[in-house]
Amino acid sequence: MSASTDPRPWQRTDDRTLLHTRVFDVRSSRFRHPGRADAKEFFVIDAPDWAVVLPMTPQGELVMVRQFRFGMEGLSLELPGGVIERGEDPAQAAVRELAEETGYTGAAPTVLGSVHPNPAIQSNRAHVILVPEVQLTADLKWDADEEMSIALVPVQEVLQRARAGEVTHALMLNGLFLLEPWWREQGKKRGWAGI
């Protein structure tokens, strides 16, 4: 095969759930390449879609959370967000998660885009939602295993922290990328520092 050959989709021939948890399922799937007779086993994590929230204050600050993350075994500075419930609209899930985690609410949410967190092994999508004009208005409603600090951080500082390796959450970095066009437009109108 040459590098210039367009790849062809593989066909799924079989799958079975290996593990069911409250957060995700692990599935064994057999796929066959269209040019080959044999099928091979691959593993897929089936998780619900997620909402990643970009809560923007009128002053151009992001409402951010710092919390312990078990996978990295450390504290992570990141955007609020969480699981989208079955049948829930991503924008409404973002509004709900933002209020529950931070106590902030704002103007009408806008879906900026969606990404595949890790398409090699995950089937879900993360929806990036901007909630502008946020203000502290609600009581916190953390889950039993949630504990976090909340900070208002200017977007420029968030970008500096990301470039310095202090912000490593990939979905947050995706969110900042999708925020850029909106930020440039609003920044001109409001006199905010550019990205």
Results as ranks from 00 to 15, higher is better:
68 F>Q: 10
99 A>I: 04
64 M>N: 05
42 F>G: 09
49 D>L: 07
116 H>G: 03
177 F>I: 10
182 W>K: 06
175 G>R: 08
27 R>P: 07
143 D>K: 15
104 Y>S: 02
7 P>F: 07
181 P>D: 06
130 L>S: 02
110 T>G: 03
90 P>N: 00
41 E>Q: 15
3 A>V: 10
81 G>Y: 08
119 P>W: 05
141 K>P: 02
60 G>Q: 01
194 G>Q: 15
91 A>E: 12
108 A>F: 03
167 V>S: 05
40 K>E: 15
13 T>P: 11
22 R>T: 09
140 L>S: 01
70 F>L: 13
195 I>Q: 09
113 G>F: 03
183 W>H: 08
178 L>H: 13
145 D>E: 11
7 P>Q: 07
147 E>I: 08
6 D>W: 11
55 P>A: 00
116 H>E: 14
142 W>M: 02
155 V>S: 04
53 V>G: 09
38 D>F: 11
170 A>W: 03
16 R>W: 14
134 V>Q: 04
109 P>I: 06
69 R>C: 01
94 A>D: 09
39 A>P: 11
12 R>D: 04
51 A>G: 04
181 P>R: 07
121 I>P: 08
68 F>H: 13
67 Q>M: 14
95 V>H: 00
159 L>P: 10
132 P>E: 00
192 W>C: 05
7 P>D: 09
173 L>W: 05
25 D>S: 09
63 V>I: 11
47 A>R: 11
132 P>F: 03
119 P>C: 06
185 E>G: 07
32 R>W: 10
147 E>V: 12
86 R>P: 07
42 F>L: 13
27 R>G: 01
144 A>M: 13
115 V>I: 14
131 V>K: 01
129 I>H: 02
121 I>G: 12
109 P>M: 05
99 A>T: 03
111 V>K: 08
163 R>S: 12
13 T>E: 14
23 V>P: 01
185 E>Q: 15
169 H>C: 11
29 S>V: 12
179 L>V: 02
30 R>P: 03
141 K>Y: 03
157 E>V: 12
84 I>W: 08
93 A>I: 06
166 E>N: 11
153 V>F: 03
